[in-house]
Design a protein around this nucleic acid. Structure first.
Lengths: 194, 194, 194, 194
DNA sequence: GATGAATGAGTTTTCATTCAT
DNA sequence: TATGAATGAAAACTCATTCAT
């Protein structure tokens, strides 16, 4: 969060709203400027180009998103509890912010590859949090030690992401946060009976 | 697959190549026409518009993709074996077709929402195959009966999709098909020690 | 009228209908071909190009139109009666043929200058008929001898044309033929009281 | 005339020239922009689309045209004098502006029906001027009271329009303004000897 | 810092016409 | 004669970005 740059945050927040309302391709710079209450040219005093607005949106919003999760999980003891907390926080934050959910799950994915790569870098700290929990779980002898850790992380992240995307595409008609325990159960114990 | 429409398939295949090589946004109709060896106008004898080419690409290719998987899984007895086969076939087909993997995992996701919804409909039969395996597994008392079946499917599909996307974004540097048993193991038994 | 060329007339008549129904710019060659029940390519066995179809439409239809008028006026004695007959026939024929009225008064005027010049040549015999009546009227000492004859013809034709165009643009809501005597009266005696 | 919008008028005037020189169908937006000395995109800051340029051209130019005529006729006493003045002004203005004459008599008529209807609305005030003169003439007992007034107006406008169109199509080879008295004489007294 | 008028590159789609059968 | 699949040229419009004020 850039401090003492009120227009910077004005533009970021306007961008989230405009993209959520008009879709990625319907979000012209002039529309964002209008929503933010600044002139088109002013945008370019704070952002290099349009792509930079979008990267910054993701950076700012995901930054907060990840911080919240990192902070919350650090307060739990076992890796299993940490994972449940991560799932709950992941769902809770997106469920609480309708526009952000649409932008991250649907709209920003329509961007070009360059932007997608930048988005991936921004996501890196989140994947690191997951990796940390996995490592801890193994050390605590709670999680399996015979498995490719990268694969474990891909299963966790892939499952959460797919679950949220389905929920958004179903117009958020059911309770996402309520699914957290079941998702945790499935991820930890698998789909097979024991 | 439209039979006896040689130009139709010529254009579909050209589209896959052009999109894989130039990216979604760099794929002008004229480029596809040139690669297919037909005139620009000919495209419009077979497709309503540019979006229709992309939908058709996905339709044709995913149609074959799903058929292969449906056919292969039907030859296995237990739901667990079917799931392993599905994972293997999923990975094998995309690993075997570099261009198709890029197009489905990266390029086609840059499309607008209308197109994304159409893509989802095309994907529906694949999700049905997964749902069928889950149902069978429960009947065979192999898979858990206490879990939200939609969530189980989302975990399976989300994990496969994330795994393949990671592999493509890592420039396909490692053996994707070799990961199938581990992915199967994780999905069925979870990440926790028993 | 080309004899023994059934497809020729089929195409001409189809063209009138298609233009009346779809407007000048909505009348593609393929639409005319379809309406005529022939293949697109067949059109080019009878007409040099699209413009040639339109010229021929006007030629055929106006040919009949003018013949009717020339024949009817020749049966009247005085130039004044001939003029009344001409006006009546002009109005009657267009009132009787809705599609033809739309095509000649509105649609064909949207054509380019080349076509407009050709249309003018086709109209020449009609102007000749008017000129003949004027000349006869002067010889009969019924019409004024002190006036520019070309101007007299322009007044007559301009008035008829404007009257019909207004009637077509008003969706032919009133009785056009019934106006003939009044138009004749105005043209011969002018708008001023005597 | 939009005041203080220099680019607006620059584009309007460029459009008249370009259309007169290249014809209606040969007048690309880019050609008009180039002639006006602005970028293509600038056109769209002042006009909704290409058709809007054409409507505006007619609006501006006919607005001035009609104002001149309305002002000049109002300074004459009798309806007959007013009519003569109207004819003179009509001819004089078009004779004085070669490009405008071509555009109004030939090029703008090639437009589609939507545009033609808009052109008709713009022409309405001119027809109102004619109607006013007719009404006045009847009140002054100069013009006939036994005639359909709409028909009288159609004769006047149709005659002027046909006369000017003939003159333009004959490459303006003779003196149009000099014809005014004869046209006035024909319109008021008709073609018949008394 | 802030403005917003001006720029101009870039692409899908239509449709008259051809020609191998 | 007749067909109809194939051709390919041609143009309006959008919008990210700049820069004089």
């Amino acid at each position: 969060m850039k401090k003492n740059k009120p227009k910077y945050n004005l533009i970021i927040d306007a961008a989230v709203d405009v993209i959520a309302e008009n879709g990625y391709h319907g979000s012209q710079v002039s529309k964002i400027a209008k929503k933010a209450g600044v002139a088109d040219g002013t945008i370019y005093l704070y952002f290099k180009n349009k792509e930079d607005i979008l990267v910054s949106v993701f950076e700012e919003k995901m930054g907060q998103f990840i911080e919240q999760i990192a902070s919350a999980t650090s307060q739990r003891e076992t890796a299993s509890d940490k994972l449940l907390t991560l799932i709950q926080m992941h769902f809770r934050q997106l469920a609480a912010n309708h526009h952000l959910a649409i932008v991250t799950q649907l709209e920003l994915r329509q961007s070009n590859l360059t932007l997608r790569h930048q988005i991936n870098s921004i996501l890196k700290p989140y994947l690191d949090v997951i990796d940390g929990i996995i490592k801890e779980g193994i050390e605590q002898k709670i999680f399996r030690n015979d498995m490719n850790k990268q694969l474990m992380r891909q299963m966790i992240f892939g499952t959460l992401d797919e679950t949220v995307t389905n929920w958004v595409m179903n117009e958020e008609k059911y309770d996402l946060v309520g699914l957290a325990p079941a998702v945790h159960d499935l991820l930890t114990k698998g789909i097979m009976v024991r």
